[in-house]
């Protein structure tokens, strides 16, 4: 039996992070929730995941910087990335994300079901289990006062 796909979520908005993580877990994914780009990268340096779901506009290490760092790391060069953004398509076109090699862009506000659908669509063709065993469901500690 295959292990559930492992999704890392990086979102600085705690309420949104909570509901995305909840929906993914309810759907059967293994979820690691992080509150910032740097927390996510800290996790990725030591662990492998099947997909990264990252907010674009985060303090410190942004979603863009996280994508860039992943593409420079041989272990995460091919890891699918979904970017969440609150910027409108008129002001931030999808092609701006192409340089980061993202698989999809989801604009806020979004339906959690749309997120699930996108994650499933991206993972289905070459479903790979997590290469490095991680805690079943772990939330990486966030920065102080971030909640």
């Amino acid at each position: 039996m295959n292990a559930p796909a492992h999704v890392l979520v990086a979102e600085d908005n705690p309420a949104l992070l909570g509901v995305i993580a909840l929906t993914l877990r309810n759907t059967g994914f293994e979820v690691t929730a992080t509150h910032s780009g740097s927390d996510a990268w800290e996790y990725l340096r030591k662990n492998g995941v099947d997909l990264v779901l990252a907010d674009y506009n985060m303090p410190g290490m942004t979603g863009g910087s996280l994508c860039e760092a992943m593409r420079h790391d041989p272990r995460h060069q091919d890891t699918p990335i979904i970017v969440l953004t609150a910027f409108s398509a008129e002001l931030q076109h999808d092609h701006e994300f192409e340089s980061f090699g993202v698989s999809a862009v989801i604009r806020k506000p979004f339906s959690p079901r749309d997120v699930i659908a996108q994650v499933r669509q991206i993972l289905r063709p070459n479903r790979q289990p997590a290469t490095i065993p991680a805690a079943a469901t772990s939330d990486v500690p966030s920065s102080p006062n971030s909640d």
Binding site: A86, K108, P109
Partner: peptide, 16 residues
């Protein structure tokens, strides 16, 4: 736009 969409995202996700 960002400031408007962020709370809207939370409202939509939680309500749905």
């Amino acid at each position: 736009t960002h400031e408007l969409r962020t709370p809207m995202a939370n409202i939509k996700a939680y309500a749905e």
